[in-house]
Design a protein around this nucleic acid. Structure first.
Lengths: 108, 108
DNA sequence: ACTTTATGCAACCAAAAAGTTGCATAAATC
DNA sequence: GATTTATGCAACTTTTTGGTTGCATAAAGT
């Protein structure tokens, strides 16, 4: 799963709300999770499937219900991606700083 | 700018490639940045505008050119959002652990 | 057995996104 | 001054997304 797929899955207010709910509740059933989102069950269910496809969420059938749980490792990947970008940025800035310093030495 | 808007802006391979390029290069002109992305200049320019609208990138006209630079603070917000979710998750798990511990005490 | 509850699947629609092409313009360069 | 280069704006098409409704089904509760 690529970083853009992960971010795309997080890039919707309904889906982000689902993720927020899962971070607060225990893993819960689909109907509990999706009630009160302001859209139809099937509409919300599509969002949930998108999260499942992006591996942000895991669905486990259990009798009549289906249990939804948050996949922490996947979220961590998104965080790691941003951290990596920031790291590259820092390295570049540091290289620039050293370059400027050398110029100052040359100016002596 | 909401978290979902930020993630949505990052949720596209072309835009993520633009961000990656900016993390490695010095701030550069639009044409330098967008060449070789595999789509038309105007197509790529639309993606760049989306990144600018999400405040991930800043555009600064300079004579004939326009200088593009990465906005570090905005990326940090995305990271912070995920961190917050993880924190909620941890707090919930800790509460659950203590609950289980109490049960064990009750069993004595 | 009958009813309710939790869920899935599929068709359909409207709006947004991704991409294209063509034309315009203003700054640099020759 | 003529040309090249960097850019913008706008119209248009195709694909994707977000949402709906209707119908089906299987497990639990009465």
């Amino acid at each position: 799963m690529t970083a853009d797929e992960l971010f795309r899955a997080l890039g919707d207010p309904t889906r982000l709300e689902i993720v927020r709910r899962l971070s607060n509740r225990e893993s819960c059933t689909i109907s509990m999770l999706l009630s009160g989102l302001g859209i139809s069950r099937q509409g919300a269910r599509k969002h949930l499937q998108l999260l499942a496809d992006a591996n942000i969420v895991t669905l486990k059938p259990d009798g009549r219900d289906t249990i939804v749980s948050l996949n922490r490792a996947t979220l961590a990947k998104g965080k790691a991606f941003i951290t990596e970008i920031e790291l590259q940025w820092d390295k570049r800035l540091e290289a620039l700083r050293q370059y400027v310093d050398n110029d100052q030495i040359n100016d002596l």
